[in-house]
Simulated assay, not measured.
Amino acid sequence: MHIDIDKDVCIGAGQCALAAPGVFTQDDDGYGILLPGHEAYSDDPSLDEAARACPVGAITVSG
């Protein structure tokens, strides 16, 4: 699945890292980023939950 985080929308709530800790983490400023090895794609089943958990809809999962 393809993962996109809109950095202009992300507010750093951290819900992505809580919902899918194997795919997301937070950078030094608290904004969501993908863990190394998940730069754009992953088959982690928790991705949809992470996208739904984002309070501002900054995460898009497709494919």
Rank of each mutant, 00 (worst) to 15 (best):
P55A: 05
I59E: 08
D43C: 03
V23F: 10
H2G: 00
Q15V: 01
A40W: 06
A53W: 03
A53N: 06
D6W: 01
A50Q: 02
P21Y: 07
C54G: 00
Q26N: 13
A13R: 02
P55S: 07
D4Q: 12
G57P: 05
D8Q: 06
T60P: 00
Q15G: 07
S62W: 11
P45S: 09
V56R: 04
Y41V: 15
P55D: 08
C10P: 02
M1R: 00
K7Q: 15
T60F: 02
D8K: 02
H2C: 00
S62D: 14
E49L: 12
P21L: 03
A53Y: 02
Q26R: 14
A40V: 08
G63S: 07
D48Y: 03
A13M: 04
D4I: 07
L18A: 14
V61K: 05
A13S: 14
G37K: 08
S42N: 04
E49S: 08
A50N: 03
A50S: 03
G57H: 08
F24I: 02
L35W: 06
L47N: 09
P45A: 11
R52M: 09
L47W: 04
Y41R: 09
G14H: 12
D43N: 10
L47M: 11
G22V: 04
G12H: 03
Y41A: 10
T60A: 15
D28S: 14
I5N: 01
G63F: 06
D28P: 00
G14T: 11
A20I: 14
R52G: 00
D29R: 11
D43T: 12
G32P: 13
E49C: 02
Q26Y: 11
Q26F: 12
H2D: 12
Q26L: 15
L34E: 15
E39Y: 05
I33M: 14
I5S: 01
C10Q: 03
D4P: 00
E39C: 08
P21E: 05
D8P: 00
H2I: 11
G14I: 07
H2E: 12
G57D: 10
S62I: 08
P36A: 08
I3L: 14
I11D: 06
L34S: 12
L35A: 05
C10T: 02
T25E: 15
G37N: 10
R52E: 15
D27L: 09
